[in-house]
Amino acid sequence: MLSLERVTKVYRLGAFGLQKLIAVRDVSFEIGEREIVSLIGESGSGKSTIGKLILRLTPITSGTIRFEGTDVSTLNGLSLKEYYRRVQGVFQDPFASFNPIFKADRVFRMVRDEFYPQVGMREWNEKVEGALRAVGLNPPDVLNKFPHQLSGGQLQRFLVARALLLDIRLLIADEIISMLDASTRVDVLNLLADLKARGLSILFITHDLSLGYYISERAIILYRGRIAEMGPTDKIYNRPLHPYTEMLMESVPRLDRKWEEEGRIERKAALTGSVPGGCVYADRCPKAMDICTREEPELKEAETGHFVACWAR
């Protein structure tokens, strides 16, 4: 349904954009029908950038993003609006997602203004209430309130409800539960699972590995703007191939087993400047060989559907 082909994003910084920051480089992956794909990586690895590229919130530097065969960068005006009818996003900070000076249900009104001006007010209100119920909210409790009168979990569900008002096929969920408390987190996660059952595909962006496992069938591990490993979630979690993924899996605080005494966790953990020609993980990798600092490993299929970019594999 959605495919990324060698997508690269370079941000220009400083006066006149003389400095370059490569946030995402040569990233290719696909999201199929009714699929939840986790995009996992530490902060700064380029996750949000990928989300923004898909949502056309920032221009792409090179590569192509296709949605149902159409190159997304060619869309404009009406066709872009049609795209947004089918592809929507929900972002990390529920409080920042609402204009603090307006009532929260204004986001629904905006959808009506832009997409359904012909729908009558009564019919529309019913539709909104239906969407709110679908995300587990009781309309009278949450309508006609200011954002600061609602909890983070309620606001986040509001935004999902907003997306449901459109005929969406794909939802980009960028760290949508990282700001929520444990007690409301699961509800939003379960909501995503329900949406999938209704036929939606979801790109679930997260830095929390246990959440990724709970919700997705496929996972993509991103490191410094490059895909390190990609494949079925259980394979990635139980038999990681990339040394970076291995390290991640050993450091996840699990509830079913304690950390091993003095694992081989590097305490240095300081990112050092830009990446020269080799593997982006070479400077931290315990398995690094000569070639790792000279040549960049390509993403290759190690077993069916399970890809890894590492010379040691």
Binding site: V186, A193, L209, Y214, I215
Partner: peptide, 14 residues
Amino acid sequence: PKVGVRYQEERLRG
């Protein structure tokens, strides 16, 4: 959520 638990197998509750 625990690593090793999927929503299909065990649905957590908030």
